[in-house]
């Protein structure tokens, strides 16, 4: 009765690993000035992106990223079977409104900051299952839209605590196909929602780290692999706090990841120079780091096989105000340049 494309308890092993044919990234000015600035396709020079509101700017970034990735693959929107996209705003309006103008059959996702990996895992399933030829997975986030939804108005004079993270302004899109040139998605380990009782919305790294660790450990158990089998293990947006906790938790379970474990939230900003405290966060954080920096390293052969874990803090301002703790999730995807 066992499903033929599964290994272990929770991991999918694709029979014909889908190929990431193209990726595209659009980021905000601050991300453009960061250490990975030259890995992005497009850096906008104003957080409004020529629009009246930040919400519209975020939507436009997402649209641009999707259009760009389709163009890079030399395809047309009508060639795309499904668009899987999501974002952080209430009712995922960036994705819904972007899909309105793109006209591609659309499945909206919400995985908080893990949305990109959720989308890539699902896209790979759709393709390997034979349900689609071309699938675009995409997501976006915007510092100013997230700030006003989750925290304070942007002009409010408040001090951010040192554990706070900076929402990445940007959008990333990944186009996948059954064949072609490019790195392949070989495995996916879907995350479980884990809540360790952290209630501080300014400390999402601590809230999400156990969920990421849970996924990584299950992935290792299911596949029989260990940290040495990967050139890089990279989490989405645990930031410096969550990264340190995750390293310790993995160490407690006898997985030494001290050499090859990093986090997109740490890579994307220079926290000393850019005043981003514990690091980057948001859907776009793992999306643009993967679609820009990591794809570059996979394509030039620096990395042969990486385990990416998109992390999400599944909180809402309402739940936080009502004193609920923050559940976390982590979706693991193995990307391999064969």
């Amino acid at each position: 009765m066992s499903a033929p494309k599964r290994v272990g308890q929770h991991t999918i092993q694709f029979a014909n690993p889908p190929v990431i044919v193209a990726t595209a990234t659009v980021v905000g000015p601050k991300e453009g000035e960061g250490p990975l600035g030259n890995t992005f396709d497009m850096v906008i020079d104003d957080s409004y992106f020529g629009e009246e509101t930040w919400e519209k700017a975020e939507r436009k970034m997402l649209e641009e990223a999707v259009k760009m990735v389709i163009a890079k693959a030399q395809l047309k929107p009508q060639d795309i079977d499904y668009l899987l996209a999501g974002d952080l705003l209430n009712q995922t309006i960036s994705a819904n409104y972007a899909a309105r103008s793109l006209g591609i059959p659309f499945l909206g996702l919400y995985g908080a900051c893990s949305t990109m990996y959720e989308g890539m895992a699902l896209a790979a399933m759709l393709i390997d299952g034979g349900f689609a030829h071309h699938v675009v997975a995409a997501c976006s986030s915007h510092y100013d839209t997230a700030e006003r939804q989750y925290r304070f108005p942007t002009e409010q004079g408040v001090q951010r605590p040192p554990t706070a993270q900076w929402t990445v302004t940007g959008a990333g899109a990944v186009l996948m196909a059954p064949a072609g040139n490019g790195p392949r998605i070989t495995h996916a380990t879907i995350g479980r929602v884990l809540d360790v009782g952290i209630k501080d919305p300014n400390d999402m790294g601590s809230a999400m780290a156990p969920a990421a660790v849970d996924t990584i450990v299950r992935h290792f158990q299911d596949t029989g692999r260990g940290p040495v089998d990967y050139d890089l293990i990279i989490t989405g947006d645990l930031g410096r706090v969550g990264h340190e906790i995750a390293t310790k938790l993995l160490g407690e379970q006898k997985y030494d990841v001290s050499k090859n474990y990093s986090d997109c939230g740490i890579l994307i900003f220079d926290h000393e120079r850019q005043d981003t405290h514990a690091g980057g966060s948001g859907c776009a954080c793992s999306a643009v780091v993967f679609a820009g920096h990591l794809m570059g390293k996979l394509n030039d052969g620096t990395y042969k096989r990486i385990l990416g874990v998109g992390t999400g803090a599944l909180l809402s301002p309402t739940a936080t105000q009502q004193g609920e703790s923050i559940p976390g999730i982590g979706h693991g995807v193995v990307i391999e340049k064969l």
Partner: peptide, 11 residues
């Protein structure tokens, strides 16, 4: 008061 109490003390 803000720095020495839990995070719940906002502006």
């Amino acid at each position: 008061i803000m720095d020495l109490t839990p995070y719940k003390v906002t502006p």
